[in-house]
Nucleic acid binder design. Sequence first.
DNA 1: CGGTTGACGCTGT
DNA 2: GACAGCGCCAACC
Length: 109
Amino acid sequence: MENKSSFYSRVYEIVKLVPVGRITTYGCIAKYLGTASGARMVGYAMNVSHSDSEIPAHRVVNRNGILTGKHHFDGVNLMQELLESEGIVVKNDKIVDFEKILWDPMIEL
DNA sequence: CGGTTGACGCTGT
DNA sequence: GACAGCGCCAACC
């Protein structure tokens, strides 16, 4: 666990801890980091996460369970494909049973 | 050191 | 119920 001062590094660690078949939200991560209002920062951190191929950014969605960041992937369908590949059902760019598979670091940790 | 940005969230109309 | 605007905080130029 590298203790990086960068806010992003912390986000990476959280996302990496998300188990397969589960997802988390920007707001939950932001809140867990102490910056509840900085949900945008979490999303921005994911953008930088491209340097780290170990980060399943597709498991991170907005608080509605919508694949808001799918546009940032290699392909618009890639994000949904990855989620479905892990057993997550996605419909209309939204995660089905989103609340059921939601993995909240504040609760799980 | 200051301005801009950004994969969000909430409240108001 | 849908849409728009504002706020937040941290990194980047």
